[in-house]
């Protein structure tokens, strides 16, 4: 019986490895949380575009509050919801740098709704990675503006009721109507095919900023096994069966110039 390989053979070469722009340290994310995948994709895109030394990352308040620990780039911590404003101040002071905000749904769609709206309206040349997992993760699973109707959370124990707390917020749809938006797409991280599509979108969004075209945002439907009360695998399934129907994937606004960049990639 073949002895299982312990070491790669001489003929084997590394074809996939930990991206350089991703720090070596371990993350605090829960097992199976797709924040980790979003981080890895962003780091891979930074590596492939060769822009690590130009990036300035603006971390949110939420599960990704430690994001700046996990990337080998200059980083800072924004107050809850204010990352787009902070990124505006940074980008306008350092136009040569590539400024990225990484935000969750509570940060971006709730307390920070005005900031993201106006950053897009101004066509701010920044890139936003918007991780939508339909709950406030860090604080223990409360309802978020993106929580689904009927979704039970620690602050909507009977399930979200439209009569009480209104309807889920669709940020791609909202921001795509703004002239300042150049590249607004929604992707998902729930399986390998979709993860690869998300990687392309992140790379294109960064190219949009590199070309100084305008505001770019990639919304990533993401899992929260802990607060959804599901295993990591079940949580991926929940994205597919529950989140995607409410938040259809696709390109919501991609200008012609951005389209051209997408093809060039």
């Amino acid at each position: 019986m073949m002895q299982a390989l312990r070491e790669p053979t001489a003929e084997m070469e590394v074809i996939y490895q930990h991206p350089a722009a991703l720090s070596e340290c371990r993350t605090h994310y829960c097992p199976g949380c797709t924040h980790g995948i979003a981080h890895r994709l962003l780091a891979e895109a930074i590596d492939e575009l060769g822009i690590r030394e130009r990036v300035i990352l603006v971390a949110p308040v939420g599960c990704a509050v430690f994001a700046y620990e996990y990337f080998e780039v200059d980083g800072c911590e924004a107050a809850h919801g204010r990352a787009p404003a902070m990124a505006t101040g940074i980008k306008r002071s350092c136009p040569e740098n590539l400024v990225i905000t990484y935000q969750g749904d509570g940060d971006l769609a709730s307390i920070g709704a005005a900031e993201i709206l106006h950053a897009a309206a101004r066509g701010e040349r920044i890139t936003t990675i918007f991780v939508n997992n339909a709950v406030y993760g860090m604080t223990g699973g409360q309802m978020a503006p993106t929580s689904l109707l009927g979704q039970k959370t620690t602050s909507s124990p009977a399930g979200r009721m439209a009569t009480l707390t209104g309807y889920p917020l669709h940020m791609c749809e909202l921001l795509s109507g703004l002239q300042g938006s150049t590249y607004i797409v929604r992707r998902s991280l729930h399986d390998v095919r979709h993860i690869r599509q998300a990687k392309k979108a992140i790379t294109t969004a960064l190219r949009v900023q590199m070309a100084g075209l305008g505001f770019g945002m990639v919304e990533l439907l993401s899992s929260c096994p802990t607060n959804w009360g599901l295993t990591p695998e079940q949580a991926m399934g929940w994205i597919e069966t529950k989140l995607i129907p409410q938040y259809p994937l696709g390109d919501y606004k991609v200008t012609d110039e951005a389209k051209a960049l997408e093809k060039a990639g």
Partner: peptide, 10 residues
């Protein structure tokens, strides 16, 4: 609010 956080970024 946005203004002071832009200043913070700068």
């Amino acid at each position: 609010i946005a203004a002071i956080h832009m200043v913070y970024g700068a």
